[in-house]
Each structure stands twice: as C-alpha cells, then as structure tokens.
C-alpha cells in the first residue's frame, strides 16, 4: 500500500535524509496548471493558465490580490493557496494598521514560509500542497519570490511553477536580458504570455477564458486581467509574435517544445538579435534561420 516506510508523516526522515511527505507536496505543485512570473526594473507581471474541471464548469482562480501592492499566482491545491493568501492579507492589513506602511514583499513571503516550515516538523500536519509566485512592489522596488511548501523561498527575475513549467523557464532564461531591460509593461506581459504559451499541451491555446494576467509596479496598483479584459493582451501577443502560429500552421507538425520556444523567442527579440546565454551554435542559428524562411 505504501511506497515505503518513511512517508507516513512529514516529520520522519528516510535513512537517506529525505522527507517524503514534503517531496510529495512539491509534486502536488507540478499537478497544477502553470503560472509564470517575471520582473523588469520597475514592474512585476504574473501570468497563469486556468483550468476548468469540466466543459460547463467555471475556471479555477489562479491569481489572488493580497493588497494594492502585492499579489500571488498559485499552482497546486487551490484551497491551500486561499488559506495562505488570507493569511497574507491579514499580515498586509496589520502592517497598514500598526505601522502605517505597506507590507514588504520579503517580509510577506517569509511569514508564509515560516508557516509552511512549521508543517514539515509537526506530527499530524501535512505540508501545504501549493507553490506560490509572490509579486510585490515596495520601497526597495519590484520583487518576485517563489514559495514552496518545504518552506524554502527564493527571489527570481523570472520564475515558473506548475505543469510543464520547464518550457516557460527555458523561455525566460533565454530572454532574461530583454525582460530585465523592458521599460514597458506591455512587452513584459507579452514575454510572460510567450513563456506561458510554451507550457501548453498541443491541443490547447491561450484564450481569454483560460488566461489570467496581473501587473504590479511603480505607480501601478496590483491589477488582474481576466476574461474579456485579458483579450487586449492576447491580441498584442498575436500581433507581436504570430510567426509561431504561422509556423505551426505551415508545418502542421508536432514540433518539440524547444523548437517552438526558439521561434517565439526569435520573434520577440526581433530578427537577428543574438542571445547572451552561451548556447551551442547550432541552437543559436536555428531560430534565425527559421525566421528568415518564415518571412
């Protein structure tokens, strides 16, 4: 019945020094649909893919506002995320009430990390089954943190969690320099959507129904775009990088994710821009070649 003897509770180490319950919790994140976050000098963008349990059902909320300057995107058990976001909202309110200042992003994310860590060493509790991307803009600027049920927290310029998120991470890694230097929110969102699109399985497309976008940054309150209001961003996506779509239509094949990624990335950069990320020459030339043939 059990996979092994050491995963009955979250407090027992296996002889190899692992906590299986915690590792299972990390697996739960990968079952959830993808969420992507990216940061420029002044803004943070979260984009997420929503899922509906059945055709007639509603879509699961993926982005939750915490305060005017902070919000989260989740992957994994949504009820656990609700508990954590409620806690964050309480923290944000107390900070406003007691100190008359907005809660700092680092403090917020560390406070839920402490809660999560406690669950990994108390008998009879289970770790949270959700990963979060916490986006915030505070007096030290724009921040993006990834929160994990193990209690670990890391700050990122670009991060992706959830199903097939590796593809999005690959996109972000290759476009990091452009993303960091983006001075418009629009380009940041388009890069986010490009990254998110790479996580899609073959028969799924980004639509206004299944896509959530959120922005927070300098002089910009945390704003989420869902349903009709997200269409404006999806339109931008098509106009800027429709080559991939065309490529897909033309080829009509089931290209590997990597190929698609490279095409999209070549588009966004504008033709001929070389990456700084020391890839093998073969992969570097590939997108450019493709671009030229497409055009």
């Amino acid at each position: 019945m059990f996979r092994n003897n050491y995963d009955n509770d979250s407090v027992t180490y296996s002889p190899t020094g692992r906590l299986f319950q915690v590792e299972y919790a990390l697996e739960a994140i990968k079952q959830g649909s993808a969420a992507v976050g990216l940061v420029s000098k002044s803004h943070v963008v979260l984009v997420a893919l929503k899922r509906n349990a059945e055709e007639l059902g509603s879509y699961q909320k993926k982005i939750i506002k915490v305060d005017d300057h902070m919000g989260i995107a989740l992957a994994g058990l949504a009820p656990d995320a609700r508990v954590l976001s409620n806690y964050l909202r309480k923290q944000a309110m107390s900070s406003k009430m007691i100190f008359n200042r907005p809660l700092s992003t680092s403090k917020a994310v560390l406070s839920i990390a402490d809660k999560a860590q406690e669950n990994t060493q108390s008998y009879g509790s289970r770790p949270y089954g959700v990963g979060l991307l916490v986006a915030g803009y505070d007096e030290t600027g724009a921040h993006l943190y990834e929160f994990q049920p193990s209690g670990s927290v890391l700050e990122y310029f670009g991060a992706a969690i959830g199903a097939r998120s590796q593809a999005a991470r690959t996109y972000l890694e290759r476009n990091l320099d452009i993303i960091r230097e983006s001075d418009s929110v629009e380009s940041l969102i388009v890069h986010g959507l490009n990254a998110l699109r790479d996580t899609l399985s073959q028969d799924v497309e980004l639509t206004f129904k299944n896509t959530s976008v959120a922005v927070v940054g300098k002089e910009a309150e945390f704003t989420t775009y869902d349903d009709e209001s997200v269409q404006q961003w999806l339109d931008k996506l098509d106009s800027v990088s429709n080559a991939r779509n065309r490529g897909d239509d033309d080829a009509g094949d089931a290209d590997a994710d990597a190929d698609a990624t490279e095409a999209a990335e070549g588009d966004a950069e504008g033709a001929g821009t070389t990456e700084s990320s020391g890839d093998a020459p073969a992969t570097e030339t590939a997108p450019e070649d493709r671009m030229e043939t497409d055009e």
Binding site: I98, F99, N100, R101, S104, S106, K107, L110, D138, E139, T140
Partner: peptide, 15 residues
C-alpha cells in the same frame, strides 16, 4: 529586514 532597505521611519514609529 532580510535584504535591507526597509527602514523604520518616523511615521511608522508614530503609528
């Protein structure tokens, strides 16, 4: 204040 830069200033002390 892990990364620094979040200073406690007069309005916060007052509140």
């Amino acid at each position: 204040d892990n990364d620094g830069g979040h200073n406690l200033r007069a309005p916060h002390v007052h509140e």
